[in-house]
């Protein structure tokens, strides 16, 4: 049900029934290694190319999702996924492997929440019983496309971010009174594209911050909520710079968040001594951290309500070489977990 201007409230409360999270070697050394279902110790993961490894990550995550619920592909109605690579081929190829009817999404790093919001929408309005949504990224494949060859010795500035090698997938299903055991999706806000004229592709966090801020503010306004309604508001991949900029920007707009309750997936996944500059990024970042780490903590009762705001920078290598600024977007999904 549309509430306010751009927010859906899901009255039937679709639930996240299971999740699958996969990661690469760098993630295995990070903070959240325990929250991954499968970790690979090689970036190629036994495939010939990084792109195939990328595809494999998502395939495995989806496989894990179904395995946990003992389901087969025939039980799933739709598969919504996306990534950053040209024409989102890794996601499409993974969809071809699993053979589930598929909708390809592109929202750059916001794909994870775009997919979750749409899945919840479909399930909420009886469009499907079970939908799998996923997002993935592969560091080397993304670097290859957006920046320099992986082995090129160029110096990155401290504002740069590190693309996560990982995939996260979730099974969204109808709520059949499963409130108690599973996190349910209560609402989602679709963001608009915001361009603040920043054009440095090595500073995505700074460019994406206003998009995140805008979506959060809109979400709170649409639902007439105070920020402390949520135990945690977590952004996708703003990094150090973007997080601070977003906080300041929201304060300027009159919304004051508690910095303790405003976290960023990009700052959670890696340890301090991993060379990731300003933090992590990529569609796989928010997907892996939210589906893996944060849902686990919700189940442990640490958080009751969280708002996940995945941010995406909608640029292409062509657009920034032609001097265009970086348009950014953010989608928010609110998730609730009822503890008894």
């Amino acid at each position: 049900m549309l509430t306010g201007k751009h927010t859906w409230v899901f009255n039937n409360r679709p639930v996240i029934l299971s999740t699958g999270v996969t990661g690469g070697p760098f993630e295995a050394n990070g903070h959240l290694a325990d929250d991954f279902d499968i970790l690979h110790d090689d970036l190629y993961m036994g495939k010939e190319t990084y792109e195939k490894a990328h595809q494999f990550l998502l395939e495995e995550a989806v496989g894990k999702v179904m395995e946990k619920r003992q389901m087969t592909k025939d039980d799933i109605q739709f598969f919504l996924a996306g990534d950053l690579i040209n024409q989102i081929t890794p996601s499409s190829f993974a969809a071809s492997t699993h053979g589930i009817p598929y909708l390809g999404l592109f929202g750059a790093c916001s794909t994870s929440m775009e997919g979750l919001a749409l899945s919840a929408f479909i399930v909420n309005y009886d469009g499907a019983e079970y939908v799998i949504t996923g997002a993935s990224s592969h560091n080397a494949a993304v670097e290859k496309q957006f920046r320099y060859p992986t082995e090129y010795g160029g110096q990155k500035p401290p504002t740069a971010q590190w693309t996560v090698t990982g995939a996260g997938a979730a099974l969204v299903g109808k709520n059949k009174g499963q409130d108690e055991n599973h996190p349910c999706i209560t609402s989602a806000t679709i963001g608009k594209v915001i361009d603040m004229g920043l054009s440095d592709p090595f500073n995505m966090g700074g460019a994406m911050a206003p998009a995140a801020a805008d979506t959060i503010i809109k979400h709170l306004q649409d639902l007439k909520l105070e920020p402390d309604h949520y135990d945690l508001i977590v952004t996708g991949d703003l990094g150090r710079i973007g997080q601070k900029a977003a906080l300041d920007y929201m304060e300027q707009q009159g919304v004051k968040l508690d910095p303790q309750k405003f976290r960023d997936c990009g700052l959670m996944i890696y340890t301090e001594d991993q060379e990731v500059f300003s933090g992590a990024s990529g569609p796989g970042c928010s997907a892996a951290v939210f589906y893996g780490h944060l849902l686990k903590r919700m189940k442990q009762g640490e958080f009751k309500r969280i708002l996940v705001v995945a941010t995406g920078a909608l640029l292409s290598p062509l657009s920034f070489q032609q001097g265009q600024s970086i348009p950014c977007i953010a989608h928010a999904v609110a998730v609730e977990y009822k503890n008894t």
Binding site: P25, F26, N29, A140, E143, T150, E151, Q274
Partner: peptide, 8 residues
Amino acid sequence: MIKPFKKQ
């Protein structure tokens, strides 16, 4: 790619 690298 910049991966964990042993300084030794």
